[in-house]
Amino acid sequence: MSAETNTAIREVLREHARLPVDVDTLSDDADLFTAGMTSHASVNLMLALEDAFDIEFPDRMLTRSVFESIGAITGAIDEIAVQNGQAA
């Protein structure tokens, strides 16, 4: 994954995940729900990610585990990019 993708995800998180901690203090595998993200905020995060990356998460990806860390989100976005025939 590119550094830009990581930066962009962190930017969306900062705007929409409503975390009580600074996003920069979280590692890529830190659990966002443990860090304080609510279910409601996670839905807003998904919507914002779809908008920011111009993608659509299929229903099978709309699970807690896909959005539980920056690493997991990156993996999902990469997978969609591959399916859409783009270089991730």
Binding site: S39, H40, V43, M46, L47, E50, E56, F57, P58, D59, L62
Partner: peptide
């Protein structure tokens, strides 16, 4: 109401 904003099927 929250989930309908993002879920595509059902």
């Amino acid at each position: 109401a929250t989930l309908l904003a993002i879920a595509k099927e059902a």
